[in-house]
């Protein structure tokens, strides 16, 4: 098992460094000047040129790359060109919001998927099954931002149960935090729950047709044991794959949700950092997302190995 984890760990390094190098090059080769964005649209060319020199943006690309690489290896991500704070302090502040949001959304999505997917498979071809399948098609087809606006209209504007927007940190109270994160998490989780529900249903249908399930039933085992102990464990393997993919997707998908609900998360920070060409923040954000994704994939791989021991021997 340790050897298996070690191998997977080594594969993480290119997952992190390749996107980082691409981001470094793309940012510097694409048009758009951080100095112009800092000084604003009334600054003259001379003032912009002076700030570029001050920020070290006039160095040749190769020199900038060597300096950047040395800093990355020593975990010195530099200071934000706009906030002026160290990137290593900024990123965790924003990443905490995004990880919290994505985790709640993922848990919601898994809960909905396991219950609805299993139920749908067990009631195959019934009205309930068809209703769930239709709902999931709708869920997959509609983008998150639309869900977000509908949820706001229903739960915030019409019913007034939840706030329209804004973020309350967990330190201000878990209920206040939950209230502020409920609608964004629901908006983010609905689409993924639809995807996972379909996968769970399909997987359960396959497993329920397996001979060992028939054998278990023939031995007179209660249905909840057949489903809970035998069918669901096997059916979970493809769902775990989707959960891993969904987790990665959610980290990216939070951008629109964070903008709509005015959440100070990593997605919004990254989009704004790209728009204002805040190179160190973009690079730090990409590094953080790469690390989170790599960690997620490692966890998924380990879960695979636990669920299905054959995998670790391959």
């Amino acid at each position: 098992m340790l050897r298996y984890i070690g191998k997977r760990f080594l594969l993480i390094l290119p997952t992190i460094f390749v996107p980082l190098i691409m981001v470094f090059l793309l940012l510097r080769l694409s048009p758009g000047d951080p100095a112009g964005m800092i000084l604003g649209d009334q600054a003259t060319a001379e003032q912009i040129a002076a700030l570029r020199a001050e920020l070290g943006l006039n160095e040749p690309l190769g020199v900038q790359f060597v300096i950047w690489l040395k800093n990355i290896v020593t975990l010195d991500l530099g200071n934000s060109l706009f906030f002026r704070d160290p990137v290593v302090e900024i990123i965790p502040r924003y990443a905490g919001v995004t990880v919290g949001l994505a985790t709640i959304a993922l848990v919601l999505a898994i809960l909905i998927a396991v219950i609805a997917g299993s139920f749908s498979a067990l009631k195959r071809n019934s009205i309930v099954d068809r209703s769930i399948v239709t709902t999931t098609v709708l869920g997959i087809s509609v983008p998150e931002f639309w869900f977000a606006l509908i949820l706001v209209f229903v739960f915030a504007v019409t019913l007034r149960w939840l706030p329209v927007a804004g973020y309350t940190p967990p330190s201000a109270g878990i209920i206040a935090w939950g209230t502020s994160i409920a609608l964004p998490a629901l908006a983010l989780g609905i689409r993924q729950s639809a995807l996972m529900t379909r996968m769970m249903r399909s997987s359960m249908l396959d497993v329920l047709g397996e001979p060992y399930i028939t054998t278990a039933r023939a031995q007179g085992l209660p249905e909840h044991v057949v489903i809970g102990r035998y069918a669901m464990k096997t059916a979970a393997i493809p769902v775990v794959t989707v959960v891993g993919l969904s987790a990665g997707y959610m980290l990216g998908g939070t951008v629109a949700i964070e903008i709509i609900f005015a959440l100070p998360g990593l997605g919004r920070l990254l989009v704004e950092a790209v728009a204002r060409r805040d190179f160190p923040v973009v690079e730090g954000g990409v590094l953080a997302i790469s690390l989170i994704l790599a960690a997620l994939n490692l966890i998924i791989d380990i879960i695979y190995a636990i669920i299905d021991p054959r995998i670790r021997y391959k």
Partner: peptide, 8 residues
Amino acid sequence: MPIATYIQ
């Protein structure tokens, strides 16, 4: 184009 590019 994005405003950063526009200004430049």
